[in-house]
Write a protein that binds this DNA or RNA. Structure first.
Lengths: 219, 219, 219, 219
DNA sequence: GATGAATGAGCCTTCATTCAT
DNA sequence: AATGAATGAAGGCTCATTCAT
């Protein structure tokens, strides 16, 4: 037989669980609708309807429409940080060191394209959001790549500015070919991925121009 | 003494001029305000006040707020097309062939940053605008660069896929380092320009990797 | 102690009641204001204020100002149809057969004068409303009177065209003396009623000219 | 050779003529458009376009939109007063005494239906207009008929209340069958005219029911 | 806690009126 | 005197937010 207290705990758990579910549903609905119609043009009623719950909940859970937007923004920024570095195996060529994170990131951007649309929209209007996007977005990938290249640096003697430039360039290419072109401008996704890959190769070649080809070909 | 006809012409000219001035003022105000607050959050009153004329004029000239947006969109798309190719001198190195259009474009993007914010905003919400941005935006620069590289191709024997990838990569870098990072995410502009330039160098090197070293070795 | 179900029922009832009350209040306010200022010149704000509720409710309940007008139009047209025929007792003289419906109708028109003003206004501007007014308005009363006269026809041998003309004439007199003159043109109501009654007598006499005088003389 | 003064006079005449023409055109346009769309829903721009002149003229000539309405109202009320009585020949039967003015009036109402629509619209909204319509409208015809009947009275010994009732009834029938039913409610015009005529006959018969038969019997 | 009906501030738009030419 | 471009007040309608149930 369960104690009263335990029953209450269960109830709270259920409640909290119910609440967490609804919150997630609302955030997901908001991402979807903000992404396609824009934040301003999306009504709280639409969001509630899409999430399958009542309009008032938005204000209970998130205080306001803007609060929901804040929840949307923090829903993705927190967890994605660490995923990248951990999931990537070390590879044995410079080209692979660039291609692998790029591949991973291009796919992630496609998955998160709705969130990215919202984030980009708002970053253009709100400097505060712009700042957080700046730290969590391009810098993240560039840092990971730069670290990898630096690990590669010693034997090859890569220039530090070159590492900086190359890693940031790859980060930029991920954004453009992984998100902007296919998800916003309607480019064919396979083609953009291919172009991105080719571009990565060229950059890798440019980073250590004499290295691979010469040694490889000469031997 | 002025003839009647001339007076009438002057009158028409003045009137048309007055109207054209006001239209331009409204379009400029709209670009500025749409860019900073977003299209939806900008009220027609604000636009009229910022442009220094009455609200009704927006509807007289542009039919509706959306009509003003259309005017905004076509205000930049029409003329910029041809400017790029014509203003650039031919240069004697591959690196220069890439750096020059990039330099030109990065500066242009900074000048047009407000317009670009509006265009990007709307492209994310309206597939029709997305399509026109796609054709007038990235494709334009990539084409110019690709043509230049192709002129360079014969003596060097550049691969066609490489040209495609490199020119599109440079186009992407222009967007990110010329607009997105400095104008949206608040990066320092000089730094982004430097990174862009370095990246262009790397790409140029990567495009013709055997070039400098090989010729050097050949001699 | 009331059961949960009953409480819920009460709640629904109260809610539905509350809504029905507000709807009626809005429709009544609209009739009153449309009648005195005209449909176009009446603002939704005025209507809401007069009805004692908020402006947004008009659009929630009736979709638009025009929707409220439609509600106004159907608020009276539906129920009045059958009332007339059923409430009138059969009488024993031709004159009474005409006077009774006329009396009933003249009073009804006065009661509904505001609605009639709105209906007449809109019928002049909207052929669709004109059509419905035509079927529900003059035709209704004329039909009732004609039926009564036809029941009287056999013993008297009334001409069918005469019945048609007389019943339509009475219907017209009701409109003019029951509504137009007192409610629109500001005639004294008692006088117009008296004139209507006298006119009805004349028509009754004209319908069966030899009838009454002859029988009167026979006694 | 014409003197300077005469030339100026001609010019004034032409000018005044031009102005009078334009005024008439504006009034006619206003009647047409007020009648079909209503006063409020008709824009001054539409009126000016329909009349073929500029919008500003309305305010120059009539001071305001309402001033144009006043001009519309007085454009018909002044001249129609006297026409009726003068154009009708004396007839030799009671029935003809009623049918002739009715015929005349029913046709006139059809011709003036647009003006009548405007007048009726405004009379419902503005007591001042209602009063003038009341004096110029129903009273006019009723008076003419009553006078005619009174001329007929002496030999027949008609009751004064009957004359009052009958003439007002005919006036009412003219309005309903000459204007309201055909021009507002969309009834077939020929049918309404026929019904009106038949009703007039019945009233004539009712006015002097015993006349033909009774006098025959009395002798 | 959850609901959704009610609120009202504020938007886009229209249009009578003014005024410079 | 005539034009029609410019004005700005006010209307219908939407929608984030509140609150009674």
């Amino acid at each position: 037989m369960r104690s009263k207290q335990q029953a209450a705990t269960d109830l709270n758990a259920r409640r909290r669980h119910g609440r967490a579910d609804r919150e997630r549903a609302l955030v997901r609905a908001a991402i979807k609708l903000f992404a396609s119609h824009g934040y301003e043009a999306t009504t709280t009623r639409e969001i509630a309807a899409y999430a399958g719950c009542s309009e008032g909940l938005i204000h209970r859970y998130f205080k306001s429409k803007e609060g929901l937007l804040r929840a949307v923004m923090s829903s993705h920024t927190s967890q994605r940080m660490l995923e990248l570095a951990e999931h990537l195996p070390v590879s044995d060529s410079l080209e692979e060191e660039m291609r692998q994170p790029m591949y991973w990131e291009v796919n992630r951007m496609w998955q998160d394209r709705n969130f990215l649309r919202v984030a980009l929209q708002r970053a253009m209007l709100d400097p505060k959001i712009a700042r957080s996007v700046r730290h969590l977005g391009p810098a993240r990938l560039a840092k990971v790549i730069a670290d990898r290249l630096r690990n590669y640096q010693n034997p090859l003697g890569l220039d530090d500015d070159d590492i900086e430039a190359a890693s940031n360039a790859v980060s930029a290419l991920c954004f453009v070919f992984g998100f902007l072109r296919p998800a916003v401008l309607g480019y064919d996704r396979k083609e953009t991925k291919q172009v991105a890959e080719n571009a990565a190769k060229i950059i890798a070649r440019g980073l250590a121009p004499a290295k691979r080809p010469l040694t490889a070909q000469r031997t």
